[in-house]
């Protein structure tokens, strides 16, 4: 998930770095405005928690395992500003302690995991939550969908950055994108599942921990009064729309890039490659006899990953929301403080 130095071109690194610097700088500004004296220990602990939480392995297949990314979780507990700062610091420490991810690619990584993860995730969660009237079920469903959408949006952005980094006419990027998108739709499913279960666990045990507007100050003194004005609904809807649009775009990207050189060119290239691989005896011989053109197969695969992934996320959201016991009234009052 971490982009290394050298994968993206210097210009793209500079551009993403500038965007990230702006957004993180704004987050720090908002964080300074809203500080109770509790902000610093809480945000530091949240960053440490995300870092430690990424060490918990979730087995997928025999050798493969996934882990939490944590942007949506962080935003759910400490709010979008502090969440964005915490995720940025996690990425920085991962570089400075383990040389994980690159220095110049830090901008891109921050954009993908901190800005989209925390800001975008928060916006999507709030957007979805509105349909449930702020109930606990809404929080879980919202965060599941937000976790999935942020990963897919990050994948779409990565495809775009990768395409801009290597502006070569000869490379058929649609296949690179197919690989990226199907890979990330798995990661996104994992992230959605982990975030959903973790948040519903916290909601069950300590519902007052989930962030409400302006409660980063100490709970007993910050009760009721909002420390900073709530984010305008229109901004939130815009950001949520942007993230969702990016998530959808990630599934369209393989098609979009194959438009410019046309189906025939793609088929020509694929034939060439099939001839190359066809020399492996017995392994790939049947490819020639399959009536479906390979380009179409590719689009079917991506569509399947997209539709299947989306359906799975919605089923997941529904199941997790259903499994959550109805909140006793005094608990939801505690959450409202």
């Amino acid at each position: 998930m971490h982009i290394q130095d050298g994968v993206l071109s210097p210009v793209v690194c500079a551009a993403t770095g500038a965007i990230s610097l702006g957004t993180v700088g704004y987050s720090v500004h908002r964080l300074k405005q809203s500080v109770g004296d509790r902000t610093i220990p809480l945000t530091g602990m949240m960053a440490a928690l995300v870092f430690a939480g990424q060490m918990v392995n979730f087995p997928i297949g025999a050798p493969v395992s996934g882990h939490l990314l944590g942007g949506v979780l962080a935003a759910a507990v400490v709010g979008p500003w502090a969440g964005c700062v915490a995720m940025t610091l996690v990425l920085f420490v991962q570089w400075a302690l383990f040389s994980d991810g690159g220095l110049f690619a830090l901008g891109a990584n921050v954009l993908h995991m901190a800005v989209i993860g925390a800001w975008g995730g928060h916006a999507v969660r709030m957007f979805v939550q509105r349909f449930f009237g702020g109930s606990r079920k809404g929080i879980v469903i919202g965060s599941v969908i937000a976790a999935w959408a942020t990963v897919m949006a990050a994948a779409a952005l990565f495809c775009l950055e990768f395409r801009l980094s290597w502006p070569s006419r000869e490379i058929d990027f649609s296949k690179v994108f197919t690989l990226m998108v199907s890979f990330h739709s798995l990661i996104g499913l994992g992230e959605a599942l982990i975030t959903g279960v973790a948040i519903s666990f916290v909601l069950n045990q300590r519902p007052e921990l989930i962030w409400k507007m302006g409660t980063l100050a100490r709970p007993h003194e910050g009760a009721g009064k909002s420390v900073h004005p709530p984010i305008a609904t229109i901004t939130r809807t815009l950001v949520a729309g942007l993230v969702i649009a990016l998530a959808i775009a990630s599934f369209l990207s393989p098609f979009a890039s194959s438009f410019d050189d046309g189906l025939e060119a793609v088929l020509g290239k694929l034939n060439l490659e099939l001839n190359l691989t066809g020399s492996v005896p017995g392994l790939l011989e049947d490819y020639d006899r399959i009536p479906v053109p390979v380009a179409a197969w590719q689009s079917i695969a991506v569509s399947f990953a997209g539709i299947g992934g989306t359906l799975a996320v919605f089923v997941l959201a529904w199941l997790l929301g259903k499994a959550l016991p109805a909140a006793p009234p005094q608990l939801s009052e505690a959450a409202g403080e």
Partner: peptide
Amino acid sequence: ETWRSAAHLVGRLLIRAL
């Protein structure tokens, strides 16, 4: 079960950390 307990681990760690 592995998944659920791992996610509960993260949630429990979150509560303790806060």
